[in-house]
Amino acid sequence: MNLLIEKTSFASPRARALAKKLGIDLSHYNGSGPNGRIIEEDVIYYTQHLNSPISDQTPPKKQPRKITPLAKNIATIENIDIEKIQGTGQDGKIVSTDILKQIEPLHNHTDKKKIRLAGVRKVIATRMAESKRNAPHVTLTVKTEVTNLVNYRNEYMKKHSIKISFTDLLIKMVAASLQQHPKINVSLEEDMLTYYSDINIGVAVAQEEGLIVPVIHQANQKSLEQISVDLKDKVNKARAGKLKPSDMENSRFTISNLGMYAVDAFTPVINQPESAILGVGRMIEDIIVENSQIRIGKTMVLSLSFDHRVMDGAPAAEFLGKIKHFIENPEEILSLQN
């Protein structure tokens, strides 16, 4: 291996055959042939002109190595001996990539694994990049008190002897908010705005291979129980890889809940062609100041990203305010259901 790396001079077969016959070591000489190759004439020259032990003699003229200015700078900074490098440029000129190749093994000892983008990951990559590229995102955040919501949920579960999740509740509240703010339930494709009357809420579900978004269709017309059953069913299907395309179609608005992680707020990327997405942070115990009084309660932060091409900050802020209102006053929409 070492021999291969350190080989800096090349001799033609003819020169090597003659050198072997004369018992000469060619490794210290420069060639005058193409690309600096040692040719027969060089061997003849050395034997005729250099009588004392050949290896004591310095070569007659050491040709400066051809090297690009960039390559030379890198070599100087990295302290690389250019004499040991075989140039890959024109006429053996050393170019920057030749130097970088020498540096790479010095700087990078870690093993890496490369996997070509495929499947769900590839779809996500394409869609996320497109969304960020095409839609100017604005993210609004607001702290919301959830003390009432937590209590309400506990009572509700006790009363009905069922288990519902915060996500189920959020779907219900977002659906109710969307119904009152139809300008958010809109999509932009090419230069055409489409306003929808159906309220379908997508829920981002994390999976090993990547996010998928099952959809609760007509969420505004469903009871909390129905939403809960529907979502559980779809999440189970998703984890088993049995989600049908129809279970993921026609989403109008997405909820991305990172509440189970140590995340307060974030800037979610809109799931196009939707126009907005709600990011949900964790619930924490918090100090709440109200009417000049301090009390302890629970809060979480909502992050609403919206597409500024489609709507402006004011309607988005109103919409976010509506969600906040429902979360803080859950009985307003859930009281109807006994």
């Binding site: 077969p13 090597r16 055959a17 042939g33």
Partner: peptide, 8 residues
């Protein structure tokens, strides 16, 4: 005649 070649 490889050994007689002085160039490619």
């Amino acid at each position: 005649v490889f050994d007689y070649l002085d160039a490619p």
